[in-house]
């Protein structure tokens, strides 16, 4: 079984051009780069992601949660008269609320990013390809998954060779 076919490129511009071309013929196209290449995700048809929304929710839960805790403990569960101040002294409840808003949002951003990215995933067919070691160093890869409707081991390989890569390698399942 084949997982995908990988075409290797030397630079980000070659990869961007190749991705734009490949997207006209194939749907299940992936691109791998040693750093974030501007415009690559857009070229793959990804215009926005849900990390900001998750971060917002995390912040609201963190801040709202701790304010509720402060209110519940100071007004309902353990009301004490502290210098005649109102039980729900909201101005002094703000600092913990602020801190936990940040904490909730940061945790959500981090965990949300990992979950949406499908990480942690310690094993992946790509790691069976020795050449892929260089994807975290200086090489740029274009992958076409075998599950694509128009994937054909021979024709797709020829197509990829036509994009003028350094080489084309097969990723076994």
């Amino acid at each position: 079984m084949i997982h995908s076919l990988l075409a290797e490129f030397a630079g980000p511009n070659e990869l961007l051009d190749a991705v734009r071309q490949a997207r006209r013929h194939y749907e299940e196209v992936d691109a791998y780069s040693p750093y974030a290449v501007d415009g690559l995700a857009e070229a793959l048809g990804m215009r926005r992601n849900r990390v900001p929304l998750i971060t917002l929710l995390g912040g609201l839960i963190g801040g709202g949660g701790v304010y509720f805790l402060e209110w519940y403990s100071a007004v309902i569960d353990y009301p004490i008269n502290s210098g005649g101040r109102p039980l729900n002294s909201w101005p002094v409840f703000i600092p913990p609320t602020f801190e936990l808003t940040i904490l909730g949002a940061a945790l959500a951003a981090f965990i949300g990013m990992l979950v949406l990215n499908g990480l942690p995933k310690l094993h992946h067919p790509l790691f069976n390809v020795p050449q892929f070691d260089l994807a975290s160093r200086n090489r740029f890869f274009l992958g076409i998954r075998a599950t694509d409707r128009r994937f054909d081991p021979t024709l797709t390989r020829q197509y990829l060779l036509g994009l003028d890569p350094l080489r084309v390698v097969e990723v076994p399942e």
Partner: peptide
């Protein structure tokens, strides 16, 4: 490394999250 592959969509979410974290920090 949690199985990081440097896939373009991973990078996209990574950069968004990184920028948001900077804005929070």
């Amino acid at each position: 490394a949690l199985g990081w592959r440097g896939e373009a969509r991973q990078w996209f979410r990574f950069e968004t999250a990184y920028l948001l974290m900077a804005g929070l920090a």
